[in-house]
Simulated assay, not measured.
Amino acid sequence: MTSGSTAKLHHYVPQGYLRGFATGQERITAIPLDRARKPFTTSVKNVAAQTHFHTVEGHEEPDAFEKALGSVEGDAIGLIRRMQGGEFPLPEEDRMALSFYLALQAVRGPDTRRTMENLQAKITRVEVGAGGRKNVGKWIRNSLGFDATAEQEQFVWDEATQPGGPPIKFSNLAHIRHMVGTAEDLAKYFETRPWLLVRFDKRSLITSDAPVSLIAKPTEEPWQGVGFGTAWGIAFPITRKLGLLMSDPMVMIEQFELDDPRIQTVRAAAISGRFDRVETGSTKMERLFNEYSAANAREYVYRHPDDAAFVPDELPEPTLVNMEVGGFTDTEFDGKPWFPAATSPVPAEAD
């Protein structure tokens, strides 16, 4: 039994956010990274969405989480409107609420779900393959809870040890739990950074289906990667005329020892907005935002229909997962156990 109407089309980039890059009639231009497809202009309700992306089957209200997200998004859009109107820095409570919204936006897309599935598939591949063909039955019993027939054992072995691992699909509930938990952990990396609000007049910003971008330190090599805790900056285009750049907090505390109480003083000052500032947008700043927005896109770049001139010439190929694991996970298995005396580990269950 459900209460009220159930929403079917669920956005992983909020419509309220996309309206900041659309016309007054809510028209926005989508640029597919797939070169075989041409850009198109449509309503914001038609982009960055999938059918039943957050539906929890069997729940009394299957789209309860979608409605909860709508509340979080509505509050965040209200904060953005206040920033557009000149209120900055935000009060601490509002800063923390917006930080959670940004962190949530960083991990809620289909690429995050596909990455989870890809990692779990590779982990399962190693678990089964390393245990050896003769131990597949034991792995099935420990992991899946039943005694398999010979045919079932062979099927699991073939599926699990194929390149890339078995076809694993996470449920919407597992994705939701991962999304919320990860966002709660990541929010601190947003709220404790100095915030630079950049206001543009003549130039404009674009966005994408993954609008939170990490900017590596200039001294880092590309192979080193970049994370929320190590990034020189975190960039988020708020609207086509407003960008938020969260800079490296380490420059303010790197002279202190880890146990120095002054670190907590600096942290508190950052959260209070004492280091925040506003800047008029320049061509250099516009290019920084737009180049990172384009580079971080997964399948689509979005822009106002009048802002074609601000899309970088070079766009990346589509990125369906945001992290790949190679090395030993790609090992070919010959059926012999890696550790003959050991039993295969039991993987964590996915809801």
Rank of each mutant, 00 (worst) to 15 (best):
A297V: 11
I238E: 01
A268G: 04
V301W: 13
V251N: 05
Y300L: 14
M285A: 02
R262H: 05
E314D: 10
L315D: 05
L288N: 01
E299Q: 15
D276P: 00
L242A: 05
Y300Q: 13
T239K: 08
T239I: 09
A297W: 10
P237I: 07
S272N: 09
R267S: 11
T283C: 08
P318Q: 12
L244A: 08
V266F: 00
K241L: 06
M252H: 07
R287I: 09
E286L: 06
N296H: 08
I238V: 03
V311H: 07
V251E: 00
T280W: 05
M285L: 05
S293A: 08
P316C: 13
A270M: 03
L288P: 07
L315E: 02
T239Q: 02
E254W: 15
M285R: 11
I263N: 02
G281A: 02
M246V: 04
D306N: 14
R277L: 14
R240N: 06
E299I: 15
P237C: 09
R298P: 00
I271K: 03
L315S: 12
E257P: 08
D306F: 04
P237D: 06
V278H: 01
L315M: 08
D276I: 01
R287L: 01
E286A: 04
P312Q: 03
E314M: 15
R287C: 10
Q264G: 09
P318C: 14
R298F: 09
S272A: 11
R240F: 00
E286K: 09
D259E: 07
L288Y: 13
E286P: 04
S247Q: 07
L245Y: 01
F236M: 04
A308C: 07
D313I: 11
F275R: 00
K241F: 00
N290A: 04
R303N: 00
F275P: 06
A269I: 10
H304A: 06
S293E: 14
R303W: 00
T280N: 00
